[in-house]
Amino acid sequence: MAGNEQQPQNQAVKHRHRTEGPQKHVVVFILSIVLTAIAFAAVAAGDVNPVFTIILLLVMAVIQVFVQMGYWMHLKDKGHLMPIIFMIGGFFVASTAIVMAIYWVWW
């Protein structure tokens, strides 16, 4: 921890941390807009097969959520194992509730 030790360390840090640009996030934003537009267009078109439309809506939503959580919430970055476990746990319980509620009421 001597003073002359810290100087080169700081410079190394500055070189290593190049600030990331906005490009990646703008790409995620445009992708989100496109996925949303596909979902809206499928519904606005009207006379598409309803089962196909429902599957399309769910697929578009899941892709968009994965991309946004991966890039905007940094889940794809290093050191996010516990957050991923927390979120998978949350989604697991949530999907159990959804499957059971639909099962009980409709069948």
Binding site: M87, G89, G90, A94, I98
Partner: peptide
């Protein structure tokens, strides 16, 4: 951890 809990909260409302 809180967001995982929020996912459960919204999951039950969606259900």
């Amino acid at each position: 951890l809180f967001l995982g809990g929020e996912a459960v909260l919204f999951g039950t409302l969606f259900a």
